Structures are given as structure tokens and as C-alpha cells.
Amino acid sequence: MDLYPPTMSMTWRLFSAQGVRAGPIRDAARGPEEAPPDARAAEESEQPRFLRGFHDILITIGVVVVLVGLWGIGGAIVVLPAIVILAEILVGRQRLALPAVSLTLALAHWVAQGMFGVFAVWRPAWQSDTYVLAYVCAFPAPLGLFYWRYRVPLSFALFLLSIAAVMVALVFVILEKAFGASFILETYPHVAATILLVAALAVFALAMRYDISDPHRLTLRSDIAFWLHLAAAPALLYAMLGFIVTFGQGGIWWGEGGLGQAVAVVFLVALFMTIGLVIDRRAFVTSGLLSLGAAIWTILQKSGASFDTYVFVVFAAVGLTVLVIGIFWQPLRRAAMSLLPEAVTARLHAVR
């Protein structure tokens, strides 16, 4: 598969010519040069180009409301032509970025709902993994066609993710037949966790390939990497959490699991936050916040803290973590990057 479509640079110029690239909003009373250097660097380090201004927001609201109304009136049969017509006008002609994202998501939702209805007839007769395989096979073609026509980064990222989902489901079906198991996730959890981890690593590697190919983040490759990282971060985290759960003695580590499992989760989330700092992708920070809160809850519960204080301590700890990382993103990133060899840092987004 050609990972870098030949029309990518042309598409980027077309989007740029229409002003799709969004810059940071600054105080009108201050020039850009007056903003603190770390603040400017933090603003500019990760800017997916899907918002141009309030016009995009207004059009997107209209798109969502119209599609919801049409779904209620005529169902999936009416919504698909509406998605195509709106995409042709708003994306194909006007090159509006945020409506392009919303229409891509609408198409994915249409496929999800439509296939659920189509396969509902056969679902009782199929095994779980076979049903999942048939279901995910419906996604690559429409998403690929949408990207081919409109060159929306999110649609290409979802196309790649849907192919990964098909491959995982296919492996599950093959193992199900080989082992004679009814549902591989339940009967062989360690094997399933390994397969999911390998798939998540593959998505992460693909995202890094796009990142490395555009270290200055000036083209749509960076946007594709953004969406892939957004999926890879939680996929990697929860695949690794699967090992913590299955190797632990408790049924689940949250509440019922041991203190050791909760501590392992904290270290895992810390590792992910460090990776996010190194590659300058905040998805690796946000993906672990729920697990971090659950782990802190478990630690407090096992330590015998008062029930009345757990919730507030958890919220305070998670919120403080977010604030510290967010406020000191650039200094923390400089510290993390200083520990790596220059051969690695030279290929990543530059530290400012």
C-alpha cells in the first residue's frame, strides 16, 4: 500500500489556499512575539487542521442537525445520499475542514448502524468472532472511497484502522477454528491480549512513520498521524492493561484487584505520558487519565483511606497531573528529549 498518496502535497496546497490551516488564538493586545516562548511552542506543537473559524463550527452544527433529522425521518436510506451531497458541496468544493471531519464520522456511523441492521438476521447463527469479522469488513471500502474522493485525513486514518480491525478479527476467527474455542477473548485471554498488543503496536508504528515523514508538521501527513495516535494510544494502553488484569490474582484490578496491579497501572500510565512528551502527542497523556484515576482509587481503598475522601483525592490528583504536564509541557519535553540520542531526536518534532 502506498502510504504517501501522490496527491497529498497537492491537497495540502488546496486546503492551505482556502485558509483551512488554523493558527493559535492570541490576545489582540499582544503581538505573537510578546507571548512567552514556551506558551507559543506549546500552542504550535500539535495543531490538527480541522478548524478554520466559527464559520466551520456553524456549518458543522447545521450538518449534524440535518443528518439527525433526516435519520429520524427516513433512516439510513435517506442519510447516505445526504452525506454524499453535503460532502460534495462542503468538502469537494468549499474545502471546509471541520464539516469534512463531521461528514467522515457520519459516514462511519452510517456504516456501523447499517451493517448492524443487515447482519442482525444472521447474528444468532454465527459465532461471535465470525460476526465481528463480517461486521468490520464493511468499513474499509466506503471509508477508502471517501478518502479517494475528498482527501480527508480522518477518513484515511479510519480506513487504515478498519483494515487493522479486519486483520485482528480474521486472526481471532482462525484461532477460534484452530483451538475449537467459542470466543477467543474469554477462553484464551493471554493470546487475545498479545494479538491486540501487536495490532496496536502496528498502528502506532504507522502513526510514527507519518510523524517522522513530516517532522515540522506542515502537511496533511501530520494530521493523519494525529488521528492514528488518537487511536493507537488507548489501544496500546488497554492491550497492556489486559496483561495486568489477566496475570493478576483479582478478577479486575479496579477495586477487586491487588495493590500491586494498581501500582503497575500507575507506572504504565507514567510511561505513556513520557512517550507522549517525547513524540509531542498529547493523546498518550489523555488516554491514561481514566486508568490513572481508577488506580489511585484502588490504592486509596487498599490503604484504608476514608470513603468520604477518595473521590475528591482522585479528582485532585488526576487534575493536578494534567495541569502540571500541560503547563510545563515544553520544559518536561526538553528534559525527556535530553535523555535520548541525537539520532532519535533529530527525526522527531523539534523541541522549542
Rank of each mutant, 00 (worst) to 15 (best):
M1P: 09
S9T: 12
M10Q: 12
S16V: 05
Q18T: 12
G23Q: 14
I25R: 08
R30N: 03
G31A: 13
G31Q: 07
A35Q: 06
A42Q: 11
S45Y: 14
S45N: 12
E46L: 15
Q47K: 13
L51E: 05
R52Y: 01
H55Q: 12
G62K: 00
G62R: 06
G62I: 02
L67R: 11
L70Y: 08
W71Y: 15
G74C: 05
V78M: 15
P81E: 10
I85D: 08
A87V: 11
E88H: 15
V91L: 06
G92V: 10
R93S: 11
R93M: 14
L96Y: 03
A97G: 12
A97M: 05
A100I: 05
V101Q: 11
V101T: 10
S102D: 08
L105H: 08
A108G: 09
H109Y: 09
H109A: 13
V111C: 08
V111A: 08
G114E: 06
M115Y: 04
M115I: 11
M115N: 01
F116I: 11
G117W: 01
A125V: 11
W126P: 00
Q127T: 11
V132F: 00
C137S: 09
F139K: 00
P140Q: 06
L143S: 00
G144K: 07
L145F: 07
L145V: 04
L154Y: 02
L160C: 13
L160E: 03
S162E: 12
A165E: 14
V166I: 13
M167C: 14
M167H: 10
E176I: 13
A178I: 15
A193I: 07
I195T: 15
L197Y: 09
V198Q: 12
L201N: 10
L201K: 07
L206N: 04
R209H: 14
R209L: 13
Y210D: 03
S213E: 09
H216M: 13
T219G: 04
L228W: 02
P234T: 02
P234H: 03
L236V: 00
L236D: 01
L237F: 00
A239V: 02
M240R: 03
M240D: 01
G242P: 02
Q249E: 10
Q249R: 09
G250W: 07
G251M: 09
G251E: 07
V263F: 02
V266D: 05
L268H: 00
V269M: 03
T274D: 09
I275M: 04
I279D: 10
R281I: 10
A283I: 12
S287V: 09
S287N: 02
S291Q: 13
G293S: 04
I299N: 05
A305C: 06
S306F: 11
V311D: 13
V313Y: 05
V313H: 06
A317T: 11
L320N: 02
W329C: 00
P341R: 05
R347S: 06
